[in-house]
Amino acid sequence: MIKRLIISGVTALLLLCGAEKVHASSYYWAPKTKINDVEVTVSAGPEIELPSAVNHDFEKSEDNLENEQNDNPIIREARKYLGVPYVWGGTTPHGFDCSGLVQYVYAHCGKQLPRVTTQQEHCGKKIPLDQAHPGDLYFWGFPGQTYHVAIACGNGKFIQAPAPGQSVMVSDVQFFRPDFAIRLD
Score class of each variant (00 low, 15 high):
residue 82 L to P: 02
residue 86 Y to N: 01
residue 60 K to S: 01
residue 94 H to E: 11
residue 115 R to E: 01
residue 104 Y to P: 02
residue 52 S to H: 11
residue 65 L to W: 06
residue 112 Q to T: 11
residue 7 I to L: 09
residue 55 N to S: 10
residue 115 R to D: 00
residue 120 Q to K: 10
residue 124 G to W: 11
residue 79 R to L: 10
residue 39 E to P: 00
residue 117 T to I: 05
residue 79 R to Y: 07
residue 10 V to T: 05
residue 72 N to D: 12
residue 120 Q to I: 14
residue 89 G to E: 04
residue 153 C to H: 06
residue 147 Y to R: 07
residue 155 N to K: 15
residue 76 R to Y: 08
residue 100 G to Q: 04
residue 158 F to W: 11
residue 12 A to T: 14
residue 61 S to F: 11
residue 141 G to H: 09
residue 54 V to G: 00
residue 75 I to P: 04
residue 4 R to T: 08
residue 171 S to I: 07
residue 54 V to H: 01
residue 46 P to T: 08
residue 41 T to C: 03
residue 115 R to W: 05
residue 36 N to S: 04
residue 159 I to F: 09
residue 70 N to L: 15
residue 139 F to T: 02
residue 131 Q to S: 12
residue 88 W to Q: 04
residue 42 V to A: 02
residue 86 Y to T: 02
residue 161 A to H: 10
residue 107 A to H: 14
residue 30 A to R: 15
residue 150 A to I: 05
residue 126 K to M: 09
residue 151 I to S: 01
residue 18 G to S: 11
residue 156 G to C: 06
residue 168 V to S: 01
residue 82 L to K: 09
residue 21 K to N: 08
residue 45 G to C: 10
residue 59 E to Q: 13
residue 68 E to F: 14
residue 102 V to M: 07
residue 112 Q to D: 09
residue 54 V to S: 01
residue 15 L to E: 06
residue 86 Y to P: 01
residue 104 Y to A: 05
residue 5 L to M: 14
residue 40 V to L: 13
residue 183 R to E: 02
residue 182 I to D: 01
residue 63 D to V: 13
residue 145 Q to E: 13
residue 63 D to E: 13
residue 9 G to V: 13
residue 139 F to C: 05
residue 102 V to S: 01
residue 137 L to Y: 03
residue 6 I to P: 00
residue 183 R to H: 12
residue 78 A to I: 08
residue 162 P to G: 06
residue 48 I to P: 00
residue 180 F to N: 03
residue 44 A to H: 05
residue 40 V to G: 00
residue 85 P to C: 03
residue 43 S to L: 13
residue 100 G to T: 04
residue 125 K to A: 02
residue 27 Y to L: 09
residue 44 A to P: 02
residue 121 E to C: 08
residue 137 L to R: 03
residue 57 D to P: 05
residue 41 T to S: 07
residue 155 N to D: 13
residue 11 T to N: 08
residue 164 P to C: 09
residue 97 D to F: 02
residue 168 V to I: 05
residue 63 D to S: 14
residue 138 Y to R: 08
residue 178 P to W: 12
residue 15 L to R: 12
residue 22 V to F: 11
residue 153 C to Q: 04
residue 106 Y to M: 10
residue 5 L to I: 15
residue 34 K to H: 06
residue 126 K to D: 00
residue 68 E to S: 12
residue 135 G to F: 02
residue 67 N to L: 13
residue 173 V to K: 14
